[in-house]
Write a protein that binds this DNA or RNA. Structure first.
Length: 296
DNA sequence: TTCCAGGTGG
DNA sequence: CCACCTGGAA
């Protein structure tokens, strides 16, 4: 017998109301003050970045640039400086470019429809739907890696999700109640459950609101083969070299340094040149008069 | 010392 | 598929 469309939704909603973390972007005063732009900025920072690292940067960022027009008028150097050590600094440039597009193409108002959001730089399947749902209250499936794991277990009875695919959105959609507000909570609850209870390595099933209906539990918690690729070593990587260059420029007077001083002590000159060239290609640094500098 | 989390774009 | 960053946990 196929699962009923909203199987688990009431349990998720009740659990979320009682146990969701109190995060800044979930507070009514945050949404009242920053609106959809606040949701968009928080989701940008949360891409690939733990909640605890985002919180202090988010407050400072929105205090400085509370709306798209304010950010759009900043320079690349200011944006990268403010992004600081959040990681993946291309996101900072994408966010800046998204602000420019919102100012120039949407009258400074964060768009509501998923297609328009997807057209903005740095916004993909997850972020577009997260903004549409959490900022505007529309009914769409929002799927992050936590959601995918929760669905793999509770619905499909597998310990780990399959590789990401469009079917993930269909799976989540099937769990959403008709009511838009309830649907938004179920989206948030699935992510929250995966982040705090149905975790990758040590799920705490005793605290799970879906315990009674969980397909993984019903199947006896079968293991699944670990198909994760080993993460590339960071020490000595191109990533580390790029990160060092940007960190040096963030801390330099005028955000510029003589080319000879940039990564001067890096052990592999070819790798250093490759890192610098790729930073220029990405628009994260510029070369001028024998110096490297953050972009203007 | 290694491992881990995590969306987007190419 | 693979590159992209960081710092805290294991």
């Amino acid at each position: 017998m196929p699962p009923s469309p909203t199987r688990g939704a009431p349990e998720l909603i009740a659990w979320y109301r009682a146990h969701a973390r109190d995060l800044p972007w979930r507070r009514p005063e945050y949404l009242a003050r920053y609106g959809a732009w606040g949701v968009l900025v928080s989701e940008f920072m949360l891409q690939q970045t733990p909640v605890t690292r985002v919180i202090p940067h988010l407050q400072a960022w929105l205090a400085r640039w509370p709306d798209p027009a304010a950010l759009a008028s900043a320079t690349g150097a200011e944006v990268l400086q403010q992004w600081a050590n959040l990681g993946y600094p291309r996101r900072a440039l994408w966010l800046h470019r998204a602000a420019v597009a919102i100012r120039d193409q949407h009258d400074g108002t964060t768009p509501r429809d998923v297609a328009s959001l997807l057209a903005l730089p740095g916004i993909g399947d997850y972020t577009a739907r997260a903004v549409a749902v959490f900022a505007f209250g529309d009914r769409h499936p929002v799927v992050d890696t936590n959601t995918r794991r929760v669905i793999a277990r509770a619905v499909h009875g597998r310990a780990q999700p399959e590789p990401p695919s469009r079917r993930d959105l269909d799976d989540m959609l099937a769990l959403l109640p008709d009511d838009r507000g309830d649907a938004a909570i179920v989206n948030a609850a699935a992510m929250e459950l995966g982040a705090t209870v149905c975790t990758a390595r040590t799920p705490d099933c005793a605290r799970c609101p879906l315990l009674d209906s969980c397909a993984w539990r019903a199947a006896g918690y079968p293991e699944s083969e670990d198909r994760r690729r080993r993460q590339a070593r960071y020490e000595g990587s191109d990533r580390q070299a790029r990160g060092r260059v940007l960190r040096a420029l963030r801390h330099a007077d005028g955000h510029r340094l003589p080319a000879a001083e940039v990564l001067a002590d890096w052990p592999d000159p070819a790798q250093r040149d490759r890192a610098i060239d790729s930073l220029i290609a990405d628009g994260l640094i510029e070369a001028e008069d024998g110096e490297f500098l953050l972009p203007r």
